[in-house]
Nucleic acid binder design. Structure first.
Lengths: 197, 197
DNA sequence: GTCTATAAGTAGATAGAC
DNA sequence: GTCTATCTACTTATAGAC
């Protein structure tokens, strides 16, 4: 493969990533994608066999972005509380740059739940819960699941509700400030949860 | 209008409600909707001018279902804590019956944020926050916004993540049990939040 | 590698018979 | 009120020139 082909491929991937996340699978038109990527429509099929094939690679990347880094953070050599606080920071940093990511991933997962198994790999998810419970030595596995759900809820949902929250504010900068205010708030809540387990 | 026309109209609305929520606006095909409703495709356009018009009435109903009842609960003549706990119960009860509702609403709001203003009425949302802060007598308005976001996050997100959470369980009944376990957990968290304001 | 042209199928919407 | 048939536009995907 030449260098130019890799560049074109990347231009398509970048545009597809942004457009799929914005519009979902059914909402994206191949022509619009070609325009946005600055390439010819025929090239989309030359580099990726079909719309579905292109979507699959984008979706894999999206799920990885949404879950991958927090799984790593959950496995670090730190106290449980420090790891939880670390995950909060990772989430807020990632999602401030990419606020539409979660609603896209969960909508597509809801539309086609089989994709969970195919692209995500259930094992990595179990790893996340296990990393927090440390095989039951720190907290029981069932409690760890509740903890993970609460943590992800508090971190991720505000971004999914962004269009609504924005109605209470003047602009995007206000939203960012609101999120920054939540950072210590969520950490404190999670610390309290740890005490009550 | 005759009685039969009302029945047909209702059959269409019911099928559209389920299908739009399952597939989103772009994913729904009018033919599939006609099949599911047990009516002819032409009738869809006879009763509702267009797909968009049909969607609009479904979306209004969906937003109302997701926010309407909690706004009422927030305004009841009770202590702030009792109202918060009441909202948790309303959410869990509603969403156990209709788990796909939130991801649909937030996906469509994200796709077309103008719909917030058009169909929801920003005023009712402000009312919710105001009801909780009671015009600043109970808690400041900014804190009330954080409280509402935290509460809705903890109640709604687990349903949006249902396809993922289900991977940790055997069946739908297990998921319902998991949600029931969360009911006191979330209430206790919210009570703690009230103390720290 | 990139483009144009077009195939093949399907979408929403409408007209008109019954 | 309900159905069949059909129109027009647009969709993904491909074939083949350059």
């Amino acid at each position: 493969m030449g260098k130019k082909s890799e560049i074109t491929r990347q231009k398509i991937m970048d545009a597809a990533y942004r457009l799929f996340i914005e519009k979902g699978y059914d909402g994206l038109r191949m022509q619009e994608l070609a325009d946005r990527a600055g390439v010819n429509k025929g090239l989309l099929h030359h580099y990726f066999r079909s719309k579905q094939a292109l979507f699959n690679s984008i979706f894999t990347r999206s799920v990885d972005e949404l879950f991958g880094r927090i799984i790593d953070t959950a496995g670090e050599e730190k106290t449980l509380e420090a790891r939880l606080h670390g995950i909060v920071d990772v989430y807020f940093d990632t999602l401030l740059d990419n606020p539409q990511l979660p609603v896209f991933v969960f909508f597509e997962l809801n539309r086609n739940p089989q994709q969970v198994l195919a692209y995500f790999g259930l094992e990595r998810l179990r790893l996340l819960v296990n990393n927090l419970s440390a095989n039951g030595r720190e907290i029981p596995i069932r409690q760890a699941l509740h903890m993970v759900v609460s943590m992800v809820s508090l971190c991720v949902f505000p971004f999914m509700a962004r269009p609504v929250i924005l109605q209470f504010m003047k602009n995007q900068a206000d939203f960012s400030r609101f999120i920054e205010e939540r950072r210590p708030l969520v950490k404190s809540l999670l610390s309290h949860m740890l005490l009550t387990l």
